[in-house]
Write a protein that binds this DNA or RNA. Structure first.
Lengths: 154, 154
DNA sequence: AACAGTAATAGTAATTACTATCAATAAGGA
DNA sequence: TCCTTATTGATAGTAATTACTATTACTGTT
């Protein structure tokens, strides 16, 4: 006898949140989604947006991104792909072209043996300044001694 | 006439924070550093610890890590190296062996041309369960459709 | 050694990005 | 339509960090 799992209801709010995100490839934050959704549902609560983004991500309908800043971002594209994050403004873009997955998978396997971790994936983020930030006069840091992905962003 | 930049004073607090971290390769969080430092300086303020960790990281004496969780971590090893994060307990380890940097550098260059970003680095994190979490009975997620680095950690 | 200028500190309030709680509401099957 | 319970809006709470402020203490100069 398998316990029946709770049905996921298709509420108006959930529907609008999903539709809004599905047409937005800017990798918005939760509050950006909230602002957009409010045009259609002015009374929606921010908590509802957070709750539904989490549920939609768990269901696999959207992807939750953690670009190494304080805010999560959300992506309607659920295929495995890499992102590019601007260290200054936080903009996130899809990576053009594709980096082959297989050599990384081999590295994962070797690592699992070496470290006794159960490795199940990796996260690869390229960081830099987007063209807008460069146009605004921001420049690349001159000297780099450490993995720049770990630098503090402005 | 170049404006003289403010001198960075070597206070007792700063000294103890640096020494404490330099002998701690567990990649501690700010509050873990705070607890350790308090043994020597019971009256030190948490804000002082945060402030100094930031300054030390900016100065390049230590490295600030963002392992994709809510808390920053700190590393006395300022050489470029990769880390391994447990998605469950947040433990961070140095990656054993070395992954060659050069192919990644080539990818960075190609990406810069493609995207018009000023790419200056990348961040590569392997994620999984550490041996302790596996011993405690936690298992790897069965099905993965997306880049697992973006999954919500428990 | 006394002084001036200012970097740094302790203590605490404020902020940010969520996350939990809970009474009221509304899907969706019987 | 009725009933069960998933979901909602409103708001309080939380964790990690950051800002603020009065006070303290270096450091170079007399």
């Amino acid at each position: 006898m398998v316990k029946k799992q709770p049905a996921i209801r298709l509420t108006k709010q959930r529907q609008v949140i999903l539709e809004t995100l599905k047409s937005d490839y800017s990798h918005p934050t939760a509050d950006e989604v909230y602002e957009k959704v409010r045009h259609q549902l002015p009374k929606i609560s921010l908590a509802t947006v957070y709750r539904n983004l989490e549920i939609l991500a768990e269901t696999g309908l959207i992807q939750e991104l953690d670009p190494g800043r304080k805010q999560m971002r959300f992506d309607p594209n659920t295929h495995a792909h890499y992102h590019l994050t601007c260290v200054r403004c936080g903009r996130v873009e899809d990576m053009a072209g594709d980096i082959s997955e297989s050599p990384m998978k081999n590295i994962e396997k070797a690592l699992g043996r070496l470290t006794k971790y159960g490795i199940f994936g990796h996260k690869l983020e390229f960081v830099g300044l987007c063209s807008k930030c460069m146009e605004a006069g921001y420049t690349l840091p001159e000297e780099l001694t450490v993995n720049p992905g770990n630098r503090k962003e402005g």
